[in-house]
C-alpha cells in the first residue's frame, strides 16, 4: 500500500481572453489582488479558434497568459476557478462577459485547466468545477491530447507554458514560497 503524500505545490497559470485591450489592465489588477504578482506575462496572442466565445464577446478576440510568483496547492484549483468566475462577473455588461478567465495549474507532469463543464475525459473536483487534463509533459515538451483546446495545442502557448515550467523548476529549487489566495 502506498502512503498518501501531499503533492508539490503547482504554478498557477491564468489565461485571459478579451476583445477590448483596455480591459487588460483592470483585469490583470484584479488577478494580482487575488493571486499576487505575476512572474511571466505573454504578449498578445491571437485567438480565433472558436466562435463560441465570439458570439458572446465579439471579435477579434485576443489572449494573454499570466503565471504567478506564489505557488498554489494543487487542491485549490476549484477555489481559484470560483474566484476567477467572480472576477469575470465584475466585467459583465448586459449579461455578456467581456473578459474570459481560464485558470490552470502547471506541474512538471502536466497542465490542467479548470472548467465548469462536464465532459467524458474531465474529473470532478467539487464545487461545480471539473479538471481538464489539457497538456502532458513528455519528450521534453508539452504534448496536446485529442481533446486539447486548439489554441493550447499551438506553439506560442505551449512555448509560454514550457518557459513557465522552467521557472517552476527554479522556484522549487531556490525559494520559499507563500501560498497564493484571497
Amino acid at each position: 500500500m502506498s502512503t498518501p503524500q501531499p503533492p508539490k505545490p503547482a504554478k498557477l497559470v491564468i489565461g485571459l481572453i478579451l476583445k477590448d485591450e483596455a480591459l487588460l489592465g483592470p483585469a490583470a489588477e484584479a488577478l494580482e489582488q487575488c493571486f499576487g504578482m505575476p512572474d511571466m506575462v505573454s504578449p498578445w496572442l491571437s485567438f480565433d479558434f472558436t466562435d463560441y466565445y465570439q458570439r458572446e464577446m465579439g471579435a477579434p478576440l485576443r489572449r494573454r497568459m499570466f503565471s504567478f510568483r506564489a505557488l498554489v496547492g494543487q487542491e485549490t484549483l476549484s477555489e481559484v476557478k470560483l474566484e476567477t468566475n467572480r472576477i469575470e462577473g465584475r466585467f459583465l455588461v448586459d449579461g455578456h462577459r467581456r473578459v474570459n478567465i481560464d485558470p490552470g495549474i502547471l506541474t512538471f507532469e502536466r497542465f490542467v485547466l479548470a472548467t465548469g463543464k462536464n465532459y467524458t475525459h474531465r474529473i470532478y473536483l467539487g464545487r461545480g468545477i471539473f479538471a481538464d487534463l489539457t497538456l502532458l509533459f513528455s519528450g521534453g515538451a508539452f504534448q496536446p491530447l485529442p481533446w486539447t483546446y486548439p489554441d493550447y495545442a499551438q506553439a506560442p502557448l505551449r512555448g509560454f507554458l514550457e518557459e513557465v515550467r522552467r521557472r517552476y523548476r527554479y522556484d522549487l529549487k531556490g525559494r520559499e514560497n507563500q501560498e497564493a489566495g484571497c
Binding site: L24, G25, A28, M37, P38, D39, M40, V41, S42, P43, R64, P156, G159, F160, E163
Partner: peptide, 15 residues
C-alpha cells in the same frame, strides 16, 4: 529570440 515572442513586461504588459 523565441523568448521575446512569448514574454511581455509584467508591469506595462508591453514589448
Amino acid at each position: 529570440e523565441e523568448l521575446l515572442e512569448i514574454l511581455a513586461c509584467p508591469k506595462c504588459k508591453g514589448d
